[in-house]
Design a protein around this nucleic acid. Structure first.
Lengths: 137, 137
DNA sequence: CCTGTAACTTGCATTTTGCAAGTGAGTGGC
DNA sequence: GCCACTCACTTGCAAAATGCAAGTTACAGG
């Protein structure tokens, strides 16, 4: 498993950061959470169509790295609402740098805001409407 | 080949940026060039010990992406001095964001400066001392 | 009971890494 | 002239990561 490698490649902050989020998907998950998405499905429905096994793996890794937390919003079956930790929210600076660079140098790109990520009307997790009949207990 | 994919994953600037430099090595090459390294050997000698086949591949991709240029500093055999284009230099903002985040959240990391990258005394390419006897012509 | 959804997991083929070794064109030593 | 050595890469191949499809579990609604 990648997280918590035996020893770091170097002391460089860039190299160590890349060992955590240096792949094509991790920062996209962070981006979505940064813009307010919280459930697995919302993350899976992003326009980049991240494969579900990769999404599950990245959530695990990011959680292990202290960037994301998953708190259950219901039991039976357990469902998690994912959110960024302060450490994760600080990646916003990296996100902004990429947006700035991409918009300047890659034609046809734009900053994803709430509208583009399809999160316009996602206010809170489903909460399973009135069904909290608490069958178990 | 990966560069210039058939179609982009999305219009998102972050996603498109990651398709270009979203791996564990590309940004380290950019970092080294940013700090003044220029020959293949100097890049290969960085503390992260990038495999030589990956280095050759990344230089090709970054050049294809307009981030790096290789200009020959000698012929017979042809040797290239690599440097960042303006587009590549603009990635400095991303680099700085990673350094800032890494230093704050990953214990034991620091910003690589000239001293750490082993570039202290690399002023210009070897120039093959006085051997420019120009055997060929 | 039957269909549907959310959140994953599993299998497996393809792709990308990473390590080691090899190559071509020279330079420098004696 | 021959041997050793360096730079800048290539090549081969095993190991790991990725991506796609399909399966699974636990409900909810009709």
């Amino acid at each position: 498993m990648n997280p918590a490698k035996a020893f770091p490649r170097s002391q460089c902050a860039v190299a160590n950061s890349l060992d955590i989020v240096g792949d094509k998907w991790s920062l996209l998950v962070v981006r979505d959470l940064y813009f307010g998405k919280r459930t697995y499905k919302e993350l899976a429905d992003s326009p980049e169509r991240i494969p579900t096994n990769i999404l599950a793996d990245r959530l695990k890794r990011l959680e292990a790295a202290g960037i994301v937390t998953g708190t259950p919003y219901q039991e039976r079956p357990v469902r998690y609402a994912y959110a960024l930790t302060p450490k994760g929210r600080d990646l916003g600076e990296v996100l902004r740098a990429f947006v700035h660079w991409g918009k300047r140098h890659i034609p046809g790109t734009l900053a994803l805001n709430e509208a583009d990520t399809g999160i316009a009307n996602a206010k809170s997790p489903p909460a399973s409407r009135r069904a909290r009949a608490k069958r178990a207990k």
